[in-house]
Design a protein around this nucleic acid. Structure first.
Lengths: 223, 223
DNA sequence: AAACTCTACACCTCAGACAAGTTGGGTTCG
DNA sequence: CGAACCCAACTTGTCTGAGGTGTAGAGTTT
């Protein structure tokens, strides 16, 4: 399970490996981990380093060590704030995750969209086509349309995830627009219109494809 | 400020002392603590013990150590919740979100998987093929394989999202297995093997499709 | 004044030794 | 036979000393 780790402190890497194996269910809640010496040898770090990793997870409430007895799994939940995660990672990886969310949401929306959803999407599309002077303004109407698409999927989790991405993606989008404005505005608007129409026609494959094409295009423009 | 009753681990006591002095304002937010050797001597514990105390507080987000620079105060308390959201919604919507994450991750993994990733996936696949008596045990090895696939995408956000789903999906999976065991075990294992092979052959479309097919199958079985 | 080099000092990791606590099996005693 | 005891083999806890790696700032050069 040594998934190519090489950045940062060794103890932090070891903690990540342990957390992964715990969350994958290798050691159930309340169960005992192998001994320190065994684990250290298995992961490939010194015993002191492994102990620091355990202490780090203990601080997060995941593990608890009892002298003479062993180290036990206390909780599989982590205490990391979602915003913190997104701020730590690259914009590119957030955008990739956004592709996953939106493409799937578009396909589901093609199945489940109601006439009311469709009206909301077309209203957002119309607002997007209007004239916008600042990058902030344009980012706002663009994100609003994308949000309507995800909302039309009628899946709470996907919408919640999308909303989590919004601030970070919005920042990146404004940054990008200021550096390199959209060269073909007509084509961009047409791509969004095509996405909405695919959902309107209840064509999941086309909706997912349109969504994916647009977003990977943005991804490419960024790099 | 006389030391209280000495209960439990020395490292835990040292962590408490440190937290107390931080809360008392001895070291302001963002400031640097004295060096390890100095602090260890001052508190009256060994250096490695003090390091474990620091690591414990680092796990709680209170401290952050930077190699070559020092240990700094990051915060004075803690708080959060994203897990609550997942517990509120239906298993079906979580599973739909999981399709989004895993299918995209599988495609990315087909692009980016390293030989090391591949070894990890095949190891997990082998463990999954072994005999498992309890539903919990099987759920563990199954989730471990799926996690390796997501890890091979080398996208932190997707992996973080997947990990967020694990506890909820795991519960549902065990529940389902107890009600209706897998009827065709060979086909199930073959489907997973096919997914790994598609990633090995660097075929993103096939990998995504295999992943999607397997998960929507599970989704259907649930409803 | 800016850029470069170098050194002192910080944390990071390891290995080994011993202390302290827990567990479980064997023994002894009632 | 059963209960209490004892002990040996684990476990985690702590300390030490030796190197390694990275950072920041002083000093030098341009």
């Amino acid at each position: 399970m040594a998934s190519a780790v090489q950045h940062g402190r060794l103890a932090a890497q070891a903690a990540e490996v342990l957390l992964g194996r715990i969350r994958a269910g290798e050691w159930a809640l309340g169960h005992k981990l192998p001994g320190e010496t065994t684990l250290a040898l298995e992961i490939g770090v010194g015993r002191s380093t492994l102990r620091e990793a355990i202490r780090e997870l203990a601080g997060q409430g995941v593990l608890e060590s009892r002298q003479g007895s062993g180290v036990f799994v206390m909780s599989t939940d982590i205490a990391e704030d979602w915003d913190v995660v997104l701020r730590r990672v690259s914009v590119a990886s957030v955008l990739e995750a956004r592709v996953a969310i939106e493409a799937e949401a578009a396909a589901l929306a093609a199945h489940r969209r109601t006439p009311s959803d469709l009206r909301a999407m077309r209203r957002a599309l119309a607002r997007r086509s209007g004239s916008h002077h600042t990058a902030e303004e344009f980012a706002g109407v663009d994100m609003a349309l994308h949000r309507e698409v995800v909302a039309a999927s009628h899946n709470e989790v996907l919408l919640e995830l999308f909303d989590g991405f919004v601030p970070r993606v919005r920042e990146a989008m404004i940054e990008m627009l200021k550096l390199r404005p959209i060269h073909d505005y007509e084509a961009d608007q047409a791509a969004h219109s095509a996405l909405v129409e695919a959902i309107a026609k209840r064509n999941p494959a086309a909706a997912a494809e349109r969504s994916r094409a647009h977003l990977t295009g943005a991804h490419r423009a960024l790099s």
